[in-house]
Write a protein that binds this DNA or RNA. Structure first.
Length: 403
RNA sequence: GUGGGAUUAGCUCAGUUGGUUAGAGCAUUGGUUUGUGGUGCCGAGGGUCACGGGUUCGAGCCCCGCAUCCCACCCCA
C-alpha cells in the first residue's frame, strides 16, 4: 500500500464538514469586515520567503520545501501566506495606486517539520492582510475579527499581546539587549549564545531556568518603546478594553517571522496540546518596501485550520432531502427516473436494491433524509409513490407525475 | 534535528509467565411472525497482530532495525 507522505493528511467525512464549515464562517465574517478574497500560487521563488520571512528564521533555515525546477529556478512551496499576498500587492502595483486594500485567503502551507498533533507538514491557514491603514484601530480590528471568527465557531481562547517596537526604538533596544547578553555571556546556555547572534530577542523566552534567572534584569522592550509605539500600544489596549476583548500582555511574545513590527498578538487554546497557537498576527509596516514596493503600512493575521478543527462546535445537523427506494426489482428503473427528477432541486439518495419497507426506513434514517419515498406493489400498480416525512411522522401517497 | 511512548478487525480497545483455531463493543452486511425508522431479536463477513529481520520446539507477547502516529524539546498556525 502506498501511504501519504509524513505529516500530510487527507481531509474527508466529518473532518471535511468541519473544515468547510470553518472556511465558510470565517469567509462570511471577513467579508462583513470588508475584505476580498485573493488566491496566490502555492509555489514561489525562494528569494521571496528569504526576504520576507527572514534569513534567520527557523522557517527559512530548516523548514522549507525548496527545490530547483526544470527551468533551473530556485523555488519553494509556500510556508506561510503573507509573503505571497504582499508580492501580489506589489506586482499589481496597488502600492502605487494608493488607498486601502484588504484581502483574505485560505489554502495549504508547507513546512518540513517533525509532525505531531496540530503540527503538519502540509496544513491550512485562513488569513487576512490589510494594506494602507496606519491607524492602530486597524490592528484592533484584526484582533476583533479573529475573536468574532472563534466565537462564531464556539471556540474559547486566550489572547496574548505585545509590542515589538518600530524602526525608531527596536534597533536601539536590540543593541542594549545584545550588550546586556554580552555582560552575562559566560553563564548562558548554548542556545542563547546562538540566539545572541541570530535573533537576540529570542533569548528572553529561553526555557532554561538558569538563563531566566539572569534575564530578570534584562531590559524589556515594552519599557523601551518610543513615544509613537507606546501611544499606539496604549490605544490598542484601550480599544480592546472598550470592546470587551480580554487580553494578557506577554512580553516574551516574539513572532518568529522577521517582518513584524509594533503590534504582535497570538490567540492560544488550552484544549489542544502543546501546539496551542490557533491564530497569530501583527503589524508589518516595512514588509512592502522590503519587497520593492512603495512603503505601505500593513497588518494581518493567520489562523491554523487543522488546530481549530476539533474545537469547532458544529450546528446540529438537520434532516434534509429525499431517500428513494423500491420494494421490488421491477420498480427500480422507475425509482431512478424519479430520483433524477428530484435531484434538479433537492438532495436525493437512491437505493438500487429492493428491500422491505422497514429496511428502507432504516436506510433513510442513516442518510439523514427528511423524506423516505418508496414504491411497492400497490404503488407500482397505481402509478403512485409513498412518501413519509421522517420528522413529522406523516405520510401520503402521491401520483408519480406530481412527485 | 534530539529524547521518550505507542502500533492487534473499518473505528475504540482486550489479549495471562512465550503454548493449540487471536477476542469484545461499535460500524458493515443478511434474516426476522411477509408495508412503518431512528432504540428489538438471531446470524454472517472482516486480521500477513504496521513492516523487515532475529532468538525459540513454538512469537501478538522477547531482541534488533525501519515506518507512522503521539509526547517533550525546538518552533509556529
Amino acid at each position: 500500500m502506498i501511504a501519504s507522505l509524513r505529516g500530510m493528511n487527507d481531509i474527508l467525512s466529518e473532518d471535511y464538514e468541519r473544515f468547510t464549515y470553518f472556511i465558510q464562517t470565517a469567509t462570511n465574517i471577513a467579508q462583513n469586515y470588508g475584505f476580498h478574497f485573493i488566491e496566490t500560487p502555492l509555489l514561489e521563488e525562494t528569494a521571496l520567503f528569504k526576504r520576507s520571512v527572514g534569513e534567520s528564521s527557523d522557517i527559512v533555515t530548516k523548514e522549507m520545501y525548496q527545490f530547483i525546477d526544470k527551468g533551473e529556478n530556485d523555488v519553494c512551496l509556500r510556508p506561510e501566506g503573507t509573503a505571497g499576498v504582499v508580492r501580489a500587492f506589489v506586482q499589481k502595483k496597488l502600492d502605487k495606486a494608493g488607498g486601502i486594500h484588504r484581502f483574505f485567503y485560505h489554502g495549504c502551507m508547507f513546512r518540513y517539520e517533525r509532525p505531531q498533533k496540530g503540527r503538519l507538514r502540509q496544513f491550512h491557514q485562513f488569513g487576512v492582510e490589510s494594506f494602507g491603514v496606519e491607524s492602530v484601530y486597524e490592528d484592533a480590528t484584526m484582533i476583533m475579527m479573529v475573536a468574532d471568527i472563534l466565537s462564531a465557531c464556539g471556540i474559547s481562547y486566550r489572547l496574548q499581546l505585545n509590542s515589538l517596537g518600530d524602526i525608531q526604538c527596536m534597533p536601539q533596544y536590540r543593541d542594549r539587549l545584545v550588550s546586556f547578553i554580552a555582560s552575562v555571556e559566560g553563564e548562558i546556555c548554548e542556545d542563547c549564545l546562538r540566539r545572541k547572534v541570530t535573533n537576540p530577542i529570542r533569548v528572553l523566552d529561553c526555557k532554561n531556568a538558569s538563563c531566566q534567572a539572569l534575564y530578570v534584569h534584562a531590559p524589556k522592550l515594552i519599557d523601551n518603546l518610543c513615544a509613537s509605539c507606546q501611544d499606539d500600544f496604549d490605544t490598542l489596549k484601550n480599544i480592546l478594553y472598550e470592546n470587551n476583548i480580554a487580553y494578557e500582555i506577554n512580553t516574551n511574545l516574539v513572532r518568529g517571522l522577521d517582518y513584524y513590527s509594533k503590534t504582535a498578538f497570538e490567540f492560544v487554546s488550552d484544549a489542544i496540546g502543546s501546539q496551542s497557537a490557533i491564530a497569530g498576527g501583527g503589524r508589518y509596516d516595512r514588509l512592502v518596501e522590503f519587497l520593492d514596493g512603495r512603503p505601505t503600512p500593513a497588518v494581518g493575521f493567520a489562523m491554523g485550520v487543522e488546530r481549530l478543527l476539533e474545537l469547532i462546535k458544529m450546528p446540529q445537523s438537520k434532516r434534509e432531502g429525499y431517500y428513494i427506494g423500491a420494494m421490488d426489482d421491477e420498480a427500480i428503473s422507475t425509482v431512478v427516473k424519479l430520483a433524477q427528477k428530484k435531484r434538479k432541486s433537492d438532495k436525493t439518495n437512491i437505493e438500487f436494491k429492493a428491500k422491505n419497507l422497514k429496511n428502507h426506513l432504516k436506510a433513510a434514517d442513516k442518510v439523514n433524509a427528511k423524506f423516505c419515498c418508496v414504491i411497492g406493489e400497490d404503488e407500482m400498480k397505481n402509478g403512485t409513490i409513498w412518501v413519509k416525512d421522517l420528522e413529522e411522522k406523516t405520510e401520503k401517497t402521491l401520483q408519480q407525475r406530481e412527485f
